[in-house]
């Protein structure tokens, strides 16, 4: 009896998962189809075009006008650095919100969240001018530089992620740090040596979220990066469909697929980190 229920549950579990995967993949198949369609239109008449071609993929790696690999590398570089720093800044702030009792703690955190909801219409003008201005004093962080773009991305470090992480820190027992403090460690050391390792799952999740966000971010990057050698993938890809009608849909589709692979690989390999540190047996409060 018990076994039957378990099997039934498994079957339902698989059914849901595979339906969801099919749902997720459905349009992607058409993107793949567009990427091997020689005509360069977005909607092929058939899922498998009569004449299929790999020329769009070949173009990505050989065409000198579109340094696709360079864009890919730029994107990886910018998003890895930006999301690593983001995770660190976010952890610092979450720790403060979780452990210290200061006035306006909850109000402060909620204000952070509320402010993020502002639909900043003119962000592009403001950030352009801001970076121009920073660049005058620190040229390596100005317009058309990757540090400048990273700087902008770090603006989003505090926000909903902070809440998520604070929630996780809240569940880590206080006694661990207190023991360390008694042993003579400073607060900061306790934070780095005890809390951070325990919080690895949430750090990983936040890293992945930020990484994907920064990796596919287009709007800010397109304002700040003005030279095609500095482009991130999202900005570079846009060149393929720059004018309304002369769009290289095939190349764009191929690039979207190749461009998503690194993210999937990174996500796949980081997943082992998402297993709760709290279940790992390290914490028996």
């Amino acid at each position: 009896m018990h076994n039957k229920v378990r099997i039934l549950k498994r079957i339902i579990q698989y059914a849901v998962i595979f339906t969801a995967i099919a749902f997720a993949f459905f349009p992607v198949i058409w993107i793949v189809s567009a990427s091997i369609n020689p005509g360069g239109t977005l909607y092929g008449q058939k899922l498998i075009p009569e004449k299929s071609t790999l020329e769009h993929y070949k173009m990505l790696f050989t065409d000198k006008r579109y340094p696709f690999m360079l864009w890919l590398w730029n994107s990886l570089k910018v998003s890895v650095i930006a999301s690593s720093i983001t995770v660190f800044l976010c952890a610092l702030a979450s720790y403060a919100f979780s452990r210290f009792h200061f006035r306006g703690r909850r109000a402060g955190l909620l204000t952070l969240l509320l402010i993020q909801m502002f639909p900043v219409m003119l962000a592009f003008v403001a950030l352009y001018l801001l970076l121009l201005w920073i660049g005058k004093y620190f040229p390596f962080m100005g317009l058309n530089t990757h540090p400048g773009l990273i700087l902008v991305y770090l603006g989003g470090a505090l926000g909903f992620n902070t809440w998520l992480m604070k929630g996780y820190f809240d569940t880590i027992p206080h006694d661990l740090e207190e023991a360390a403090l008694i042993d003579g460690a400073t607060r900061f050391q306790a934070f780095v040596r005890i809390i951070l390792p325990l919080a690895r799952p949430i750090l990983t999740v936040i890293f992945i979220l930020t990484f994907i966000g920064d990796y596919s971010e287009y709007l800010l990057a397109s304002i700040i990066l003005t030279g095609s050698k500095k482009y991130t993938l999202a900005v570079g890809l846009n060149l393929f469909i720059t004018s309304d009608y002369a769009r290289h849909w095939g190349t764009f589709a191929a690039a979207s697929i190749v461009g998503s692979l690194p993210v999937l690989i990174i996500f796949f390999s980081l997943q082992k980190q998402i297993i709760s540190g709290l279940t790992g047996g390290g914490v028996k409060g």
């Binding site: 650095i81 962080m141 058309n144 990273i150 003005t226 720059t242």
Partner: peptide
């Protein structure tokens, strides 16, 4: 260090040098 390594000069209208903006094609 990595951050400092990634920099270049901004392009802007400069006397004696023509800067043209155009599209990819």
């Amino acid at each position: 260090l990595l951050t400092i390594l990634l920099n270049t000069v901004i392009l802007a209208s400069e006397a004696g040098k023509l800067l043209i903006w155009t599209d990819e094609q």
